[in-house]
Design a protein around this nucleic acid. Structure first.
Length: 277
DNA sequence: ACCCAGGATGCGA
DNA sequence: TCGCATCATGGG
């Protein structure tokens, strides 16, 4: 069993892994266990060290460091987003939260599942999809199914995962992704073009597209506008209640800057925990 | 029985 | 293009 060690300051595994950007990490005692692209990984920290024990798979130190985004100059990011006074106070409460660089396909399907749902249920959906249609790799852990497999399912089959009406979107989106290389191509698209291409997929609107860009493609400037973010922008930043998604997104990027995605998440956490209003 | 959950889609005006 | 009903499902 390979063991990777990293030095990392101000990295909260709890805030990062259980925050609703990733859905396959579980807290087991003081450790976290998750499936990352077919690897089963146990993760914990001691002092300023992060320790990853690869229980199954061949993920390299570099690859996993990339997943955790350990090369980011986090203090600098916090400084940048803290230029906004409201964000600054949220940062104080939720410092340690990081945005991961997750694998696009699983992230995309996860956020298709997220619509009109909740984090607990999304976790169950992803777990069920893996157990029902993914490969068993280690103990009770299953790989997330490939687009190939999901595309081959019938609607009543995929519904057994409890994904509800989103099942048909998952199947259709998987089918489309089998033709061409969209998820690779997104890497080199501009934000606008990426949003255009992603929202062309069934079950993917602007919010889901922005989540995928932020949590998978590391476009840290993107701000997914959900009900909470809209509430924040209307109540604390003077936006109109009937403002359009595009306007709110543009405003957020302008207001919060290059790392608006981070800024938004700190506000989001604060608002959800009842700290903002 | 009713409402909401990190929305998206399809409809009619 | 704008406002709304609808979508499947589990939890409070």
């Amino acid at each position: 069993m390979v063991r990777h060690e990293f030095s990392a300051e101000n990295y909260s595994l709890e805030k990062t892994l259980l925050s609703g950007q990733a859905f396959r990490w579980k807290k087991v005692g003081s450790k976290f266990v998750g499936v990352v692209e077919g690897n089963v990984i146990e993760l914990f920290q001691t002092n300023c060290k992060l320790v990853a024990v690869v229980k199954y798979g061949t993920i390299s130190k570099n690859e996993f460091s990339n997943y955790l985004d350990l090369n980011l100059d986090y203090p600098f990011v916090l400084g940048e987003v803290s230029k906004d006074p409201i964000v600054k106070s949220s940062v104080k409460k939720f410092s340690g939260y990081r945005i991961l660089k997750q694998y696009p396909f699983e992230t995309l399907i996860s956020f298709i599942c997220s619509t009109n749902s909740n984090v607990l249920r999304i976790r169950r959906n992803i777990e069920n999809l893996s157990k029902l249609f993914g490969e068993k790799i280690y103990g009770q852990y299953y790989k997330f199914p490939s687009a190939d497999v999901l595309a081959s399912l019938k609607e009543d089959e995929i519904m057994r995962a409890g994904v509800g009406y989103r099942g048909k979107y998952i199947i259709e989106t998987s089918k489309i992704l089998l033709n061409g290389n969209l998820l690779n191509d997104v890497e080199k698209f501009s934000d606008e073009k990426a949003v255009e291409k992603l929202t062309a997929l069934p079950g993917v609107g602007r919010k889901v597209a922005d989540c995928v860009l932020l949590f998978s493609y590391h476009r840290l400037n993107r701000v997914p506008i959900d009900v909470w973010m809209k509430r924040i922008l209307v109540n604390l930043y003077g936006r109109k209640n009937n403002a359009k998604y595009q306007d709110l997104e543009n405003f957020s990027e302008k207001c919060f800057g290059k790392y608006a995605g981070y800024a938004a998440h700190f506000l989001f956490e604060d608002a959800r925990k009842g700290g903002l209003f």
